[in-house]
Simulated assay, not measured.
Amino acid sequence: MSEVDDAIASARASWSRISDDRGAVGAARLPTRGRTRRTQTIGKRLTRIAIADVAILIAAMVIGWIVPLGIGGFMLVTALLVAATLLFAVWPAERAPTPERLASVDIKALPRQTERWLEAQRPALPAPAVTLVDRIGVRLETLAPQLARFADDAPEAIEVRKLVGEQLPAFVKDYERVPQALRTTPRNGRTPDAELVAGLSLIEQEIGEMTQRLAQDDLDTLATRGRFLEMKYRDET
């Protein structure tokens, strides 16, 4: 085996270790993912409320300089502040994409859209499956920037869409159609809950393997170029 091959093998081994480390780090931060998303959503709504309320107050001050507002004007401003606060507290409603939408969304947006869809399914899933959904979310975050360089019709993009945009939503929907009373009843040696957990675990692993496959060319190029630089410049010194 040549030194370049050794460098490539070393890079691949390093990527495998990094991937495992990322998985461990991702698992450690899973409990905070939902909290972070909720905090971000609340922060956006509070920002909209603050902007609307400030605009109303500025408008009231400008009008008050021209025409005294009086008690009626004060009550009107108060009503507008309350209305704006209530409106932006619930609007715009963030609706999760549909499975049909996931099947056709731009490949660059697919990981984030799939994560949003999975987030909306959490209430219907058993606790072990919710943990796996969070792990899949971590995998999708890693996968997203890798897809930025692929067109929708690229073989790599088609493979990712098949799993993430089609098979994953269809699998979860199959589970959700099972009556809740039957989800813990064994059938063919396994309950629907267990089937769901096993399937999501396989999907999570496959997304991780996709990430590694998409990174192989970059790792090979990096290792080869690094070895070239060593041969060209270190040997000259």
Rank of each mutant, 00 (worst) to 15 (best):
Q167G: 06
V62F: 02
I71F: 06
V133G: 11
P99T: 08
R37Q: 06
V82F: 03
L163G: 04
L125Q: 04
W65C: 10
D106V: 06
W65Y: 08
L86A: 13
E156C: 06
A157P: 03
L76G: 01
I66P: 01
E3L: 03
G189S: 12
W65L: 13
E230R: 11
E176G: 05
I63Y: 05
R190I: 08
A24K: 11
T85S: 13
I158H: 08
R187F: 11
I42S: 09
R101P: 04
R12A: 03
A124T: 06
P92K: 07
A7K: 00
A124L: 09
P92W: 04
S2L: 03
D220S: 12
R35E: 12
D152G: 15
R213I: 00
T114M: 06
I18R: 10
L182W: 07
A13Y: 01
I63N: 03
D218E: 14
E141C: 07
A50L: 14
V90R: 15
G137W: 09
P186M: 03
F171L: 14
G70W: 02
Q205D: 13
L222D: 08
E236L: 14
E159Q: 13
L80H: 00
S16K: 00
R29Y: 13
K44R: 14
T114E: 09
T142L: 15
R234P: 00
V133I: 15
D235M: 09
I42G: 01
A83S: 14
D6V: 05
R213Q: 14
A28T: 04
A89C: 07
E236H: 15
A52D: 02
P155C: 08
K44I: 03
R225Q: 03
R37M: 04
S104F: 06
